[in-house]
Computed example of a mutant assay.
Amino acid sequence: MQRTSFSDARCPIARSLERVGEWWSILILRDASLGITRFDDFQASLGIAPNMLTRRLRALTESGLLERRRYNDKPPRYEYVLTPRGRDFRPVMVALLAWGNRHFAVEGPAMQLIDEVTGEAVEPVMVDAKTGELIDRARHRMQAGPAADERIRARVETYLHQRAQQRAASTPSAQ
């Protein structure tokens, strides 16, 4: 079955998934953020088939998330290093880590985010960089941006309408 491409989509989530929406890609980026750079080390860490790893590394390099650097001439050998764009994916992984620990780690966290100063485990949250306010559904909403096409505008309008109905249903009526 042919996979749908989101490369021309206006939605930033769809465009992001075009680059990292395959699970091997996210796991490669996880390992790269932990310091793994070499093909054999990625393969050993992930247990991934060499042909699949080659395809994923190529796609991540073409998307500008990894940079391929030669570290040996004879034989030619390469390492894969996170680019600034790849490093910017870290908050997404931290959010996935926190979400996975909160909802799926019934045995307890297998990986945690640690404060290097205190040595304590931290609970990551998302905040508004301007105000420092915690991002939550009650205060913040998604909205169509200036570059939104009609599909995005319709999707967001449906969401806003449903949200208004939910709020009206949960608000006690004035007597």
Rank of each mutant, 00 (worst) to 15 (best):
L29G: 04
L29I: 07
R30W: 10
A32R: 02
A32C: 06
A32H: 01
S33M: 10
S33T: 08
S33P: 00
S33H: 13
L34F: 07
L34T: 02
L34Q: 11
G35W: 03
G35N: 06
I36T: 15
I36Y: 02
T37N: 04
T37W: 00
R38A: 09
F39Q: 10
D40P: 01
D40Y: 09
D40L: 13
D41P: 01
D41A: 11
F42R: 03
Q43V: 11
Q43G: 06
A44G: 13
A44E: 15
S45N: 11
L46Y: 06
L46Q: 08
G47D: 12
G47E: 11
I48D: 05
A49L: 15
A49T: 13
A49W: 09
A49G: 15
P50L: 14
P50W: 14
M52P: 00
T54H: 12
T54L: 15
T54R: 15
R55M: 10
L57A: 06
L57E: 05
T61W: 04
E62T: 14
E62S: 14
S63L: 02
S63K: 04
S63G: 12
G64C: 09
G64W: 05
G64M: 09
L65P: 04
L65D: 04
L66F: 06
L66W: 04
L66T: 06
E67M: 07
R68F: 05
R69C: 02
R70G: 01
R70K: 13
Y71I: 13
Y71V: 11
N72I: 00
K74C: 04
K74Q: 10
P75R: 08
P75Y: 05
Y78F: 13
E79D: 07
E79M: 10
V81L: 08
L82A: 02
T83D: 02
P84R: 05
R85A: 15
G86W: 01
G86A: 05
R87Y: 00
D88S: 11
D88C: 02
D88W: 01
R90W: 10
R90K: 11
R90V: 13
V94F: 11
A95R: 09
L96G: 13
L96C: 11
L96Y: 11
L97M: 13
A98K: 09
R102P: 00
R102V: 00
F104Y: 12
A105G: 03
A105Q: 02
V106A: 12
G108C: 00
P109W: 01
P109M: 01
P109E: 05
A110V: 03
Q112F: 00
L113M: 09
I114E: 09
D115M: 08
E116C: 09
V117A: 15
G119M: 06
G119P: 05
E120Q: 11
E120A: 14
A121F: 01
V122Y: 02
V122P: 02
V125H: 05
V125S: 08
V125E: 10
V127C: 12
V127D: 03
D128A: 12
D128L: 10
A129E: 15
A129Q: 15
K130Q: 15
K130N: 15
